[in-house]
Simulated assay, not measured.
Amino acid sequence: MRAISGLWRWRHNPLCRGTDLAEAWMAFAALLLVLVAAPVVGVLVGSAAQDVLQRSVRAQHQSRHLVTATVVRELDPSPSAADPEGSVGGDPRHRVLAHWTAPDGTERSGPVPTRLEDPRPGAPFRIWTDGHGTTVARPLDTATATTHAVLAGVGAALMAAALVEGFRRLAVRHMLRRRYARWDQAWDKAGPDWGRTGAGS
């Protein structure tokens, strides 16, 4: 708003230089781009991310299966066995040797992490596997995918606004350098006669 009022105030001012007017128009254009173009960029990027992530959610839910495993015995904790999903709400994590039946009917066993409080032999718990019974991470859920898409859109909008403002600042800096160079040239011409009686008369 300040750019608009400043532009209106300067338009018929005899002291207004071309660079002042150009700077005001540039500020006005940058404001419009930040208010209009940046949100549009954010919506487009967020929508594209939402489409890709929701397709990934559907693909993961089709290819991953929740099966029941049975604890054979508890194993020593290993840092490399940590689940990338991490413990939620401070739930204890254990590493156990478990046995389960794959979706294709084959019997499988191996070390898996579990949130069971007391992983006694024979205790059942649920794990995610692919179609062949290999353990996989939990599939992405719809709400998490939507959150990531919203964050991508907001990030893209902020990035677009930052690029517009950065370009405006670079352009204004270039204009200031040219203005100072012209001042130096004018001062070089007037400098030797400055203050001399009768100079220029």
Rank of each mutant, 00 (worst) to 15 (best):
P113Q: 08
W187L: 15
Y180W: 11
R17W: 00
S5G: 09
W194C: 07
K189W: 09
S80Q: 08
V40C: 14
A181L: 04
R196P: 04
R64E: 02
P39Q: 05
V136N: 04
H174L: 11
A82M: 13
D76K: 09
S201T: 15
L176M: 11
V96Q: 01
G166A: 12
R115D: 07
L15N: 12
E23D: 11
V41L: 04
S201R: 15
A123E: 14
W10A: 15
A102N: 03
R168K: 14
Q50M: 08
H132P: 00
M159H: 05
L66M: 14
E74R: 15
A162N: 03
D20V: 12
L158E: 05
L7V: 05
V164T: 14
R11C: 03
G195D: 03
P39G: 02
A160V: 06
F28V: 14
R108N: 09
I127D: 04
P39H: 02
S78W: 10
R179S: 14
R120H: 10
S109D: 14
R182V: 08
G195R: 07
A102L: 06
P92S: 08
T135H: 10
I127R: 03
V96E: 00
P121N: 03
L140R: 08
G191L: 03
D130A: 08
P103S: 10
R115C: 01
G42K: 02
A190I: 09
R9P: 00
R58M: 12
V34G: 05
M26R: 13
Q54Y: 03
V172A: 15
A22N: 05
W194E: 08
G155R: 03
T144Q: 09
A30W: 00
A59G: 06
R9S: 08
A29E: 11
P103W: 09
W8I: 15
V136A: 07
A82H: 08
L32P: 04
R182T: 12
H12I: 11
T19V: 08
A27G: 05
W8N: 10
P192R: 05
D118C: 02
L31T: 14
R55I: 03
V96Y: 00
W25N: 09
G110E: 02
A27K: 05
A123L: 06
V57W: 02
A27F: 00
L35P: 03
V41G: 00
S78E: 12
P124Y: 01
T147R: 10
E85I: 08
T70D: 06
G89N: 10
A38V: 01
